[in-house]
């Protein structure tokens, strides 16, 4: 079977990229919130890593939506998705979540950067001052909403596929959790890489904090992957056939074992443990670790999307 062309294939790689970008956005903004609340406080906006997360979150979500629209057979009709809603459709609910998420995202960003914004405006536009103070008053609510929406967005990337009863491998209750968790880890990796590009210090407390959270996340991801496939195999029938086709020999088998398990999960875990033990972080270490996890998550999205559509119920 050709790994990229087979009869039952409906959704191609642009969907995998879209799911990847939505996950990164959700993950990155979660880390920005965590860094602000637990480490940096009011001065958070000065940190390169927070700035990277705040750039990454909106950019990823915009380009993801752009890819989704271009992938429609009628891209110019995309507004119909925004006008007509269907509450039983995960895609429809997801688009609604994405819209509200962006509002919450920009409100929170305004709160975060309120000092530089108001300095720059220098009270020239009273309207902006008024908006800023209003947002500032409700910051706790905005933050809470944003985190909830980001988590929903991360889970939605999985629910979108798990709603398909056609494909036993995708129609799997563990999938939303798996995509949520791997999305958060890609957000962490994106934040680290971006922070380094913005000249952040690789031995800063932000990096320590993120790495600290990353270790349990990677372990949890491994457990979820294990549950995902063992669950399929012991269900028997087409579920079992789907899991065995996906994990077996051939192109996608290599992607899974070498790309996802070794490069995407084991290497970052080993590097993280090593860096925690040696407690000194070098730029190259941090950058390589983050690139590995980012690549791993991108491969995971493609692997699940393609192999998931290979076996029909």
């Amino acid at each position: 079977m050709n790994p990229f062309h087979f009869d039952s294939l409906v959704w191609h790689w642009p969907i995998a990229i879209y799911l990847f970008l939505a996950g990164i956005s959700a993950g990155a903004i979660c880390f920005a919130v965590l860094l602000k609340h637990f480490k940096l406080g009011q001065n958070a906006y000065k940190s390169s890593f927070v700035q990277a997360a705040c750039l990454l979150a909106p950019l990823a979500v915009f380009s993801g939506l752009g890819i989704l629209v271009l992938d429609l057979t009628k891209p110019f009709d995309f507004w119909k998705i925004l006008v007509f809603y269907n509450p039983t459709s995960i895609m429809s609910v997801g688009v609604a979540v994405l819209m509200i998420y962006q509002v919450a995202l920009f409100s929170w960003l305004a709160c975060l950067f309120k000092e530089p914004i108001s300095n720059w405006c220098d009270h020239r536009w009273p309207l902006i001052d008024r908006i800023l103070s209003l947002l500032d008053k409700h910051e706790p609510t905005i933050t809470g909403l944003l985190v909830m929406l980001a988590l929903s967005l991360g889970a939605y990337t999985g629910f979108l596929l798990s709603a398909l009863t056609t494909f036993p491998m995708l129609n799997n209750p563990v999938l939303p959790m798996l995509f949520l968790v791997s999305g958060i880890s890609s957000g962490a990796a994106g934040t680290l890489l971006g922070g380094l590009l913005l000249k952040g210090n690789p031995d800063s407390k932000e990096v320590h904090f993120i790495h600290h959270i990353e270790i349990p996340i990677i372990l949890f991801e491994l457990v979820l992957l294990f549950t995902f496939f063992i669950g399929l195999i012991i269900s028997g029938g087409q579920s079992q056939a789907a899991a065995l086709t996906a994990l077996g020999e051939g192109f996608w088998g290599w992607i899974f074992w070498a790309g996802i398990i070794v490069i995407g999960l084991t290497l970052p875990l080993a590097f993280n443990l090593f860096m925690t033990a040696s407690s000194k972080r070098k730029l190259s270490y941090v950058a390589i670790t983050a690139s590995c996890s980012l690549l791993g998550v991108l491969l995971l999205r493609n692997f699940i999307l393609y192999t998931g559509q290979m076996t029909v119920a």
Partner: peptide, 8 residues
């Protein structure tokens, strides 16, 4: 019908 985002 359940998955269609627009009700088409």
């Amino acid at each position: 019908v359940n998955v269609c985002p627009t009700g088409a």
